[in-house]
């Protein structure tokens, strides 16, 4: 399949999701169940995308695991996104030099 087809399908789907309610729907979603699902989805998506993929990210389990651990600890300390990202990457890089 051509990369252009993938990107086009991806872009059109994402656009329609955003624009249809913007143009067509009026009023509010009242169902507490549906609202709760929509509240949880972003967190659940990010979590499911990160695990287990992060353990293969560098192509080597040990350096990925070290990076993951650093990310978890720095994120727990509420450090900014970019600090968490750079700390995790640096940790993984240094580990890959040693192991």
């Amino acid at each position: 399949m051509s990369i252009v087809a993938y990107i086009a399908v991806m872009a059109v789907t994402t656009y329609l999701i955003r624009v249809i309610p913007f143009v067509a729907v009026r009023g509010k979603i009242r169902s507490p169940f549906l609202n709760s699902v929509l509240y949880y989805i972003p967190y659940a998506v990010l979590s499911a995308m990160t695990f287990p993929a992060i353990f293969f990210a560098t192509g080597d389990f040990v350096s990925s695991a070290v990076g993951t651990l650093i990310a978890l600890v720095t994120a727990y300390c509420n450090l900014p996104l970019i600090v968490v990202a750079l700390a995790a990457s640096s940790g993984a890089f240094l580990t890959s030099l040693i192991v």
């Binding site: 990010l46 990160t50 993951t68 990310a71 994120a75 450090l79 996104l81 990202a85």
Partner: peptide, 8 residues
Amino acid sequence: YAMFIAII
């Protein structure tokens, strides 16, 4: 992925 963790 580290940034995703920092968001969650």
